[in-house]
Amino acid sequence: MRRPVLLTSGWAVLVGLVGSFVFIACPSRSPKEEKERATPAAQAPPPALAPRVTPEEARRRLQAMGFEFTEKAFLDAAQRGKAEAVELFLQAGMSPDVADAQGRTALILAAKGGYLLVVQKLIRAGADVNARDRDGGTALIWAAWGGHMPVVAELIRAKADVNARDNVGNTALIWAAHNGRTDVVRALIAAGADVNAANAEGKTALQLAVQNGHTPVVQVLTAAGAR
């Protein structure tokens, strides 16, 4: 399934497997989920320092865990948040920047899912934090879209481009504002995100926050000089 594209109506459109379009509203989250995703980055656990093993031993352990040593299996492990397996793939010689048919790297997949430990391991292994998928999305854009605050903070620390745009001109800040991710909006602004950047339809983060009724986001953006 491909990432939704912003429309001026505030709805999202998903491209179906047979080319049809289905309109859905952005899902809301429970207060508990919001609190968990807004955990300060300072409280995020550091990446585990697993003992180094030989590539041969790493592959043997992967096999014992049910993983073949293939790019597809590596990407699947990252997408499912399997941190131990991801580290073993890396120790066995897998490049951290392999991508699937949609151009999604392991880092993009892990960031989209909010898997902080996997993100940390991939960054430590030298993954390209600004790699783009076929739709122009970066790991930071995906993390902001999903409201994964600890992952957003980790990517910012790794010097991810906070003003990168996807293929329809949306920045991480625009997506965060559109989806009501207040803490993410604050973090991106503090990291230098352009509060007045507009997408291909001329919509800014502030306009989309107003349109979708995200009052706290509107207040944060206005205080930062958005117009």
Rank of each mutant, 00 (worst) to 15 (best):
Pro4Asn: 09
Val5Glu: 13
Leu6Met: 05
Leu7Gln: 11
Ser9Ile: 00
Ser9Pro: 01
Ser9Ala: 00
Val13Asn: 10
Gly19Tyr: 10
Ser20Gln: 14
Val22Cys: 05
Ala25Tyr: 01
Pro31Ile: 10
Lys32Phe: 06
Glu33Ser: 05
Glu34Gln: 14
Thr39Met: 15
Thr39His: 10
Pro40His: 09
Ala41Ser: 14
Ala44His: 04
Ala44Tyr: 04
Pro47Asp: 06
Ala48Met: 09
Leu49Lys: 15
Ala50Cys: 01
Pro51Cys: 04
Arg52Thr: 00
Arg52Asn: 04
Val53Phe: 04
Pro55Asp: 08
Glu57Tyr: 00
Glu57Val: 02
Glu57Arg: 08
Arg60Lys: 13
Arg61Lys: 14
Arg61Gly: 06
Arg61Ser: 07
Gln63Ile: 10
Gly66Ser: 12
Thr70His: 05
Glu71Tyr: 00
Lys72Leu: 13
Ala73Trp: 15
Leu75Val: 09
Ala78Met: 03
Gln79Glu: 15
Arg80Lys: 14
Glu84Lys: 09
Ala85Asn: 05
Glu87Gln: 11
Leu88Cys: 06
Phe89Arg: 11
Phe89Asn: 06
Phe89Glu: 08
Gln91Gly: 10
Gln91Arg: 14
Ala92Trp: 01
Pro96Trp: 06
Ala99Ser: 11
Asp100Val: 05
Ala101Tyr: 11
Gln102His: 13
Gln102Ala: 13
Gln102Trp: 13
Gly103Leu: 10
Arg104Leu: 05
Thr105Phe: 03
Thr105Trp: 12
Leu107Arg: 14
Leu109Arg: 12
Ala111Thr: 09
Lys112Trp: 05
Gly113Ser: 12
Val118Asn: 04
Lys121Phe: 02
Lys121His: 13
Leu122Ile: 06
Leu122Trp: 02
Arg124Ala: 15
Arg124Gly: 13
Ala125Leu: 09
Gly126Val: 00
Asp128Gln: 08
Asn130Gly: 09
Arg132Thr: 12
Asp133Gln: 05
Asp135Gln: 14
Gly136Tyr: 13
Gly136Leu: 07
Ile141Val: 10
Ile141Ala: 00
Trp142Tyr: 14
Trp145Thr: 13
Gly147Ala: 12
Met149Leu: 13
Pro150Cys: 09
Ala153Asp: 07
Glu154Trp: 04
Lys159Cys: 04
Lys159Ala: 06
Lys159Ile: 05
Ala160Leu: 07
Val162His: 01
Val162Thr: 05
Arg165Leu: 08
Asn167Arg: 15
Asn167Glu: 13
Ala172Cys: 15
Ala172Thr: 14
Ala172Asp: 06
Ala176Pro: 04
Asn179Cys: 08
Asp183Gly: 00
Val184His: 00
Val184Tyr: 01
Val185Thr: 11
Ile189Pro: 01
Ile189Gln: 11
Ala190Val: 10
Ala191Pro: 07
Ala193His: 09
Asp194Thr: 01
Asp194Cys: 06
Val195Met: 12
Val195Cys: 07
Asn196Trp: 07
Asn199Ala: 06
Gly202Leu: 02
Thr204Gly: 07
Leu206Cys: 06
Leu206Lys: 04
Gln207Cys: 00
Leu208Lys: 02
Leu208Cys: 02
Val210Gly: 08
Val210Met: 12
Asn212Cys: 02
Asn212Met: 04
Gly213Arg: 01
Gly213Val: 00
Gln219Gly: 01
Val220Leu: 11
Thr222Lys: 05
Thr222Leu: 01
Ala223Glu: 15
Ala224Glu: 12
Ala224Trp: 11
Gly225Pro: 08
Arg227Asp: 08
